[in-house]
Design a protein around this nucleic acid. Structure first.
Lengths: 204, 204
DNA sequence: TTATGGTTTAACCATTTGGTTAACAAATAT
DNA sequence: ATATTTGTTAACCAAATGGTTAAACCATAA
């Protein structure tokens, strides 16, 4: 039974507000009252719809992860060549994250806080697997398209180069002495610079 | 007047305990009581020596950062070639971090929580600068030793490849389906794999 | 031996925080 | 129209938490 008209989707408002607060402050730093204020509703509603802070947090976390997973699946499971994948992923991922700047750090941070979350999300949703990517790398190495490289290491390299700057943004801004605008420009350049860097390294 | 004998260095014990707790749980997640317990002393002592949670935290943070800065200065300011620097840094850094696994994530996380920390530490200690590294890269490109690459982008690439796996350890363990031992082996391989990857990409 | 000053502790305090409750309002069903 | 379920609120509560205090402890100097 779909929602019967109803202009206020309180449950959705809460999730949206919770997303913002949790992603900025983390589980420990977030306050239920702040989420309620952000959503413009009474604090008791949070518990009415989500029972507890923990459960609300998990809803936000799953939601966030399910945004990232398809991005990863793109590198791992489509049928283009490794070179194509690297190019597409790098450009797409940087565009995507620029719209969700808190996402990577949020996921990494909370996964560090509670590694068991991984198991919980692993079961749900289309969870990325490395198998295909690894065998594809091995095949292209065999065919002489790529220099010898381990698929796992290459995978780590790709995500490191793409994700790290968004996780360590304040650090990079500090070292490079740039502001928000400068950072954006830098990331814009990285859309091609990173894939060139990778391709240069692995292509025979 | 130096410390007069005295077997108990309470102040030091507190810092040590605070280091452990703050690095594992972050500013928000850490509890003063837990730090006191860890140090085996009364909670009031924390305030006696460090006034407040905030000040104790800052002591820990500065201390942590001052461990990392020299590592970075090594890449940035010594006189070896870029290739040498990359090789040395990669190997040294991975060894170093294996001994302080919480360090990178702690710094990044708390810098995200409060970007103003950067200014505070920037003034103290031998703070890493990029200038020399950038001009050296430009020079080696000019001389035809390196393929054309921007020094800033190369810097970001180097630290991304080296630091990210330690920041996103649970994520990587999850994707690669490996345990602690497997992760250590993987990082051991990276001591050479990462520098090869970089050198392959930039050397003419 | 006894002041003296720094060190340590147990008890306490005010505030914050996640969570509950009971009453009330607004739909929805009968 | 009226009963019943669903949504919403203000007030409340117990536990946790950072911080304080006053008294005790203890080494050293007079």
């Amino acid at each position: 039974m779909a929602r019967t008209k109803k202009n206020k989707d309180t449950e959705g408002e809460i999730l949206k507000a919770a997303k913002g607060v949790f992603q900025k402050k983390g589980m420990d730093g977030a306050r239920m009252q702040e989420i309620a204020d952000e959503a413009g509703i009474n604090k008791a509603m949070l518990h009415y719809y989500y029972r507890s802070k923990q459960l609300l947090f998990e809803a936000v976390f799953s939601n966030a992860f399910s945004l990232l997973a398809p991005q990863l699946n793109k590198v791992l499971n489509d049928d283009s060549s490794i070179e194509e994948k690297v190019k597409n992923f790098t450009s797409n991922y940087i565009s995507f994250i620029s719209k969700h700047p808190y996402l990577p750090n949020f996921i990494i941070q909370e996964l560090n806080r509670n590694p068991k979350f991984f198991e919980k999300i692993q079961q749900t949703a289309a969870f990325p697997t490395l198998e295909k990517f690894k065998s594809q790398v091995a095949a292209e190495v065999e065919e002489g398209i790529l220099k010898p490289i381990d698929g796992e290491q290459l995978f780590i390299n790709i995500i490191s180069l793409n994700i790290f700057p968004f996780v360590a943004t304040p650090l990079i801004k500090g070292f490079l002495k740039i502001d928000d605008k400068g950072f954006k420009q830098l990331m814009e350049k990285r859309k091609t610079a990173v894939s060139e860097f990778i391709i240069n390294s692995i292509k025979k």
